[in-house]
Amino acid sequence: MTNNKKEVSPQAVVYVRLKEGVLDPQGVTIHKALQQMGYNEFISVRTGRFFELEVDSDSDNYDKRLDEVCSKLLANPVIESYRVEKL
């Protein structure tokens, strides 16, 4: 890294998951596998995914744009909800 490069960019993590009530066949299948393996204390599994976003440090107020990114692209608001965590 050269000195005139920005060293650390703010990071945001977006967690996307299926909304409550929407069947998650992958979670159900993983849960069945856990039961077969004897891990009976885990009574359900829900899957999801997360995205790590590196953000230009010149952008100090990108909350609104990040929200757009989540609702337009990263999540399908019909079936999924999302949560943003800024690091």
């Binding site: 069947l23 066949p25 299948t29 399908n76 019909v78 079936i79």
Partner: peptide
């Protein structure tokens, strides 16, 4: 068509995966 909102709803993974 569902992703762009021209049709309602969503198409999810087949239930049997």
């Amino acid at each position: 068509l569902t992703e762009c909102g021209l049709l309602p709803g969503a198409l999810m993974r087949n239930s049997h995966l």
